[in-house]
Deep mutational scan, measured.
Amino acid sequence: SAVVMEEGSPGEVPVLVEPPGLEDVEAALGMDRRTDAYSRSSSVSSQEEKSLHAEELVGRGIPIERVVSSEGGRPSVDLSFQPSQPLSKSSSSPELQTLQDILGDPGDKADVGRLSPEVKARSQSGTLDGESAAWSASGEDSRGQPEGPLPSSSPRSPSGLRPRGYTISDSAPSRRGKRVERDALKSRATASNAEKVPGINPSFVFLQLYHSPFFGDESNKPILLPNESQSFERSVQLLDQIPSYDTHKIAVLYVGEGQSNSELAILSNEHGSYRYTEFLTGLGRLIELKDCQPDKVYLGGLDVCGEDGQFTYCWHDDIMQAVFHIATLMPTKDVDKHRCDKKRHLGNDFVSIVYNDSGEDFKLGTIKGQFNFVHVIVTPLDYECNLVSLQCRKDMEGLVDTSVAKIVSDRNLPFVARQMALHANMASQVHHSRSNPTDIYPSKWIARLRHIKRLRQRICEEAAYSNPSLPLVHPPSHSKAPAQTPAEPTPGYEVGQRKRLISSVEDFTEFV
């Protein structure tokens, strides 16, 4: 048969007729292969192709491409040299491709048809291009793949890379869960390890502090508590009631339409708007009261037996805890006409967050109470924005700035309102402590230090009264110190430094 060459192609190359033996071998191979691939376009007849790359030819070592076609129900084999250009295909004639002069020997084609199974398996396991790669995943090629499931790999992101949580363990979102698992493993320790309690022994800490320079003076030496005195035992138990972190309780009120001037209507609300609910979820963490331990979680007086509701929101960081007394989460009882059960919590909070959804101005004093010092007013606006402002009593104007209003988005509203309420509550605590000038409020841990110092002074006084020969370590507060001759004046800087060093040991009130 003659071949018409394309323009620009090399000279004529004689194409030899395939021997009958080659056709029989390739026909047997075509019957084993699956003929249901995917359909081509209507211009080209339905056909199945599979590209198999052999590394070497037997005796020649030339890479070839073998295409199996099922045109007219008769499979045909096409061998081509890759750099050459194939002729145009037609549905009426068999596929013809040019070969190099080196394939002119018909014996070479017979060798190609009689490829060993080793070469076929190696060509099938190679990388296939384009559409033949999808075909190689079918059941027909499963014989050339190794048996057994593939090893499982770690989760992959859409980009093909490992997620960040699997790369950096410290930033993994499941870090707290692993800590819980470690605690569970520790709890399952053997009885021999049960006595080993991690941490620092208080006796060891005391020993280090006792021999430090801070205890060089007799006034700073630790003293032993009497065991037989019940009054001192009660004082030590009272110390446990003062937490070592700051605590805040903040009221949250929802004002519906037409309720801006009605205290009873505001306290009777059992739910609010959708934006109000989203605002609550951002204030803190939802907790169930019956599962809380009052000595570990500050509840601000809420009952854990269901008297004040089942849930509330709280927030904490390293040095403070805040609980929100939310009116809509507290039960509304029919027998309580004046809502006294709610007001006994909300009316005693220094700061209230008022979500004013009424469309009218909310005035300070609508919720009557002796300790309502500051109101954080949240007014929802259009386009997911809110107006946040402050209202306070006249005696609080020096501590709280009420002249600045803020426009905040719904997303950042819980954070801004919480921070403003916490700052206002700190100012309210300082303002409330002014009624007792001898006990200015600095912080909870300073209050613990003052309680310890008062307890020490009482013990020293009782020891001096029981044994008059012992001198008083600290003179009583009601006694007057003996007159001392004025010492020589020293520079102001040295006096300030000495006073600062003494105050650092005794108390921190002056620095606050």
Rank of each mutant, 00 (worst) to 15 (best):
V400I: 08
W445A: 13
L289M: 10
R498L: 07
H375T: 12
S262Y: 03
V252T: 01
L501G: 13
C314I: 15
Q310M: 15
T402Q: 09
T277S: 12
C292R: 12
K249L: 07
T281I: 06
G369A: 11
I440L: 06
C292K: 10
V236A: 08
A265L: 08
Y276H: 01
E233Y: 08
G284Y: 04
H451C: 14
I223W: 08
G300W: 06
G258P: 02
D410P: 00
I446F: 07
E257T: 08
Y465M: 15
L329Y: 04
S244E: 15
D336F: 13
C314E: 15
N227I: 11
K406R: 14
S469F: 08
K453F: 09
R344L: 08
Y313A: 12
D303W: 02
T332Q: 08
A421Y: 01
L413T: 10
D217I: 14
L329W: 04
D336W: 10
S268L: 05
P294L: 14
T509E: 08
R418P: 01
D395H: 09
I223K: 06
I242D: 06
S231H: 11
H431W: 10
I250D: 00
P471N: 11
R234H: 13
R418I: 04
R458L: 15
K221E: 15
K343N: 07
D291P: 09
T509H: 10
E263F: 02
E270Y: 04
F371A: 12
R339V: 14
P482D: 11
S403F: 04
Y383R: 04
H474P: 14
K221A: 15
E384N: 09
L267Q: 03
T277Y: 12
D291M: 14
R275T: 00
E270W: 04
E257I: 05
L238E: 15
P486T: 13
E263V: 01
R275W: 00
G365A: 11
V495E: 15
S409E: 03
L364D: 11
R500E: 15
L225Y: 10
A424R: 00
D349L: 11
Q391I: 07
I440T: 13
L390S: 03
P243C: 07
K296M: 05
R339Q: 14
G306C: 08
M320L: 15
K444A: 08
A322Q: 05
L289N: 15
M396L: 14
D349C: 08
N425I: 03
F311T: 05
S477H: 12
D291Y: 14
E397C: 08
L239Y: 07
L470V: 14
A487N: 11
M330F: 04
R456I: 06
F232C: 11
R454N: 12
H271I: 08
L413Q: 00
E218Q: 08
S352L: 04
A481W: 09
I377Y: 02
I242Q: 08
N386Q: 00
A487C: 10
V304L: 13
L364M: 15
D217E: 13
N412Q: 05
R500G: 13
P475R: 13
I319Y: 11
L280N: 00
G284M: 05
G347S: 15
Q259A: 03
S479R: 10
N356Q: 01
A322R: 01
V400M: 12
F350V: 02
H478A: 15
E506Q: 06
P486Y: 10
L238S: 10
N436K: 08
Q241W: 07
P475E: 14
K499C: 11
D295L: 05
V323W: 09
L413I: 04
S409W: 01
C292E: 08
Y276G: 01
E288F: 09
V404Q: 08
K296P: 14
E270M: 06
L280E: 01
A421E: 00
P475F: 12
K249W: 05
A327E: 04
I326W: 02
H431K: 08
G256Y: 00
T277N: 14
S479V: 09
G369F: 07
I377F: 01
I326S: 04
S358Y: 00
S262A: 06
T332V: 09
S244C: 07
L472W: 12
I407P: 03
F415G: 04
T312P: 04
E494R: 09
Q370E: 15
W315G: 04
G492C: 13
E263S: 03
T247H: 09
Q391P: 00
N425T: 14
D439Q: 08
A463E: 14
A265R: 05
S231L: 13
A322V: 14
V404T: 12
N220M: 08
F324Y: 05
G309E: 10
T247S: 06
S433G: 06
R285Q: 15
L390P: 01
H375I: 10
P471L: 06
V416Y: 05
V304C: 11
T402C: 11
D295R: 07
Q429D: 03
V374E: 01
L346E: 06
L264N: 10
L225G: 09
I319H: 08
T366H: 04
